[in-house]
């Protein structure tokens, strides 16, 4: 199967439709985005597939209400509408009520670059960090999506699943711990690549004596794994706002003299269209850009 034909979103739709059929506790809340692909599920479960129209504040409020009655809401839209726009609803209608939901976004960071800044959301994970208590999962491949989604449904905790059109060539399973995919000299530089940043990171470090660890679950961060693997030089490569995990990593390594390089999407608005590949290049997140930053840091 050509990986370009089946996306993370497709995997999400298939898995969620099956969950709705299998688990009467699950419900899906939409704000028009992806409503057409969920039409068969809506037909089968009209009272648990709820499209509120283009009303994202209500979408999260409804999810909070559903959770208050004991259901497990799955809520879905573009990251910028799901998270940025409805931030206070996430904070109050879920967090402050003491209930959870599974929020599933598409259009992460600059996936929607051709639509412009209005459809970009590089700061979503940082926003969840301001609330705390959220599990944040950033799959790097469509085949990682079903297990993450299924594992999120039996409980009531808050989970953010960040889907992207950027993908690694291979899937790396459901383990939420740091997975070492390339091993350098022990105690040498450690690179942690999150989600779809793995493949460009592996391409960038060809010939370098570095360890590369992968995770699709940056929250809660695998601090035990980090402590076990880190020497005095750590490099984070994250597909969202640069520095999102810096404070966390520095905190874990506070007892160890270390240097940290945090790579990710820049804060400045570039104000250009172009493809996600163009934006990866402009933010220094393609293999060549990563290679230049990593080499300069380690030299």
């Amino acid at each position: 199967m050509d990986s370009k034909e089946v996306t993370m979103r497709d995997s999400f739709v298939t898995t969620t439709s099956a969950l709705l059929a299998d688990d009467p506790r699950t419900a899906l809340v939409l704000a028009d985005i992806s409503a057409s692909v969920f039409a068969p599920a809506a037909h089968r479960h009209p009272e648990r597939v709820l499209n509120v129209g283009i009303r994202e504040q209500l979408m999260i409020g409804v999810a909070g209400g559903l959770a208050l009655t004991g259901l497990r809401p799955i809520v879905h839209s573009y990251a910028t509408f799901l998270v940025d726009r409805a931030y206070e609803q996430i904070k109050l209608d879920l967090g402050h009520q003491g209930v959870g939901a599974i929020l599933v976004s598409v259009g992460a960071s600059y996936d929607g670059s051709e639509m412009g800044r209005t459809h970009m959301s590089p700061g979503d994970v940082a926003l969840f960090d301001t609330i705390g208590g959220w599990t944040v999962q950033v799959p790097g491949h469509r085949d990682e999506v079903p297990a993450l989604l299924k594992a999120a449904t039996p409980h009531d905790d808050p989970v953010y699943l960040r889907l992207s059109t950027q993908s690694n060539r291979l899937s790396y399973g459901g383990d939420t711990r740091l997975q070492v995919l390339r091993r350098g000299t022990p105690g040498g530089p450690l690179i942690v690549a999150v989600g779809p940043m793995l493949d460009p990171t592996l391409a960038a470090v060809a010939g370098l004596d570095v360890t590369v660890a992968y995770t699709h679950t940056p929250r809660p961060f695998d601090t035990t794994g980090l402590q076990a693997l880190a020497g005095s030089e750590v490099i984070l490569v994250e597909p969202y706002l640069a520095g999102t995990s810096s404070a966390l990593v520095n905190g874990v390594l506070s007892h160890v003299p270390h240097r940290l390089l945090s790579l990710g999407v820049g804060h400045a608005e570039i104000r250009r269209y172009g493809t996600p590949q163009d934006h990866a290049r402009w933010h220094g997140l393609d293999a060549a850009g990563l290679r230049a930053s990593i080499s300069a840091f380690l030299s």
């Binding site: 419900a27 009272e47 648990r48 709820l50 504040q57 209500l58 999260i60 409020g61 409804v62 999810a63 909070g64 209400g65 559903l66 959770a67 208050l68 009655t69 004991g70 259901l71 809401p73 206070e88 609803q89 109050l92 209608d93 402050h96 009520q97 003491g98």
Partner: peptide, 23 residues
């Protein structure tokens, strides 16, 4: 519900009504 910030209760109420109906 925990409230105080205005404009949150009716959305939570809609969700609660929907959640009861769905069950």
């Amino acid at each position: 519900i925990s409230s105080g910030s205005l404009g949150h209760g009716l959305g939570l109420g809609v969700g609660t009504a929907l959640g009861l109906r769905a069950q």
